[in-house]
Amino acid sequence: MAKNVLEVRNLKMYYFTSKGVVKAVDNISFDLKKGEVLGLAGESGCGKSSLGFTLLGMPTPPGKIVDGSIKIDGREIVGLPEDVLRKEIRWQKISMIFQGAMNALNPVYTIGFQMTEPLIYHKGMSQEEALDRAQKYLELVGLDPEIVYRYPHELSGGMKQRVVIAMALLMEPSVVIADEPTTALDVIVQAQIINLMKRLKKELNLSMIFITHDLSILAEISDKVAIMYAGKIIEIGDSEKIYYEPAHPYTQKLLAAIPRLHEDVERLEFIPGQPPNLINPPKGCRFHPRCPYAMDVCKEQEPELKEIDKDHYAACWLL
C-alpha cells in the first residue's frame, strides 16, 4: 500500500471580510497517497481553489487558516512561519500549476530566468546547473530545451502551459496542485496537456490534486474524486464509484447536467437555485434548499461524511 504524502484533517480556512466571515474551507479532511491523483470538483465559489491555495500555506488575504492540520510527508505545515514555508515547503514539498498560463509567467524575463531563479535561490545551484535542470524539465514536458532563451510572448498558449507545468515539477515536490490547468485552452491543446499530465503521473509517480469545475476533464485523470459544495467535501471516493454510483444527490445532479458526446440525452438535468452565501450558510445540510429529497432532519442537523462503501464517503441524511 502506498503511503500518504498528504494528510489533511479538519482544515478550516475563513475569509475575514468587512461583511463577515466567509467559511470558504470548512472542516475538510482527506488523504492523498503517493502516485495518486485526487480530483476536486464543484461549482464556482464552492471553495475548491481556496482549498488549493490553503494547502500551499498561502490562503489569499483576508483568508486565514483557523483550525486543522496539513501534513506533507508527515510534516505539519499549519503554523509554520512564512520564511520556513517559503524556504522549505513551497515549491520543494508542494507546488502549484496555475490557472491561465498566460498570466502566470512574467513577460519581461526569459523562460530560463524564471525557471532557474528558484533553483539558485532555494537549492543554491550554480547558474549552469540550474539551466541544465530547467532544460531537462522542459524536455520532459515535450518542449524544445532551447526555449529557455525565449520570452513568454513568443510561445503559444499550450507551450506556456507546458512551461508552467515544468516549473511546478522543477523542485521535485511531493505534491502538485493543478488549479484548472486547462481552462483557457482550446480542446485539442487541452487534450494534449491532459495527455502530458497522464504521462508525468506514470513516469514520475506524481501525487497530484487536480482542481476543476469540469467533471469530464476530471474523469480523464483522477483516481479519486472529491465533490465540494459550499466549503465542504460532500462526497469522496474512487472515480468509478463517484461517476457510476454517485451517492449524494448533488453529485447525481451534477453528473446528469453534463451533455455527452456519444449519447442521446433527452433532457439535461439542472439544479435550481444557486449555491448559498458562505457568510451565513443554511442550517443543517448546506445543500438542503436545492435538494429535491430534503427532509426535516436535513434542515436541522448537518450530516457527517460516512462510509457507504469501501473508501466511498458521502454526507447525506438519505444514506
Binding site: 497522464k198 506514470k202 461517476y243
Partner: peptide
Amino acid sequence: AAVPEPKPERRNVIKEL
C-alpha cells in the same frame, strides 16, 4: 478525439490525437 468524456475507466490511457 480531444473531447473529454466523463468515463474514469480510461484515465490511464493516453489519448491518440
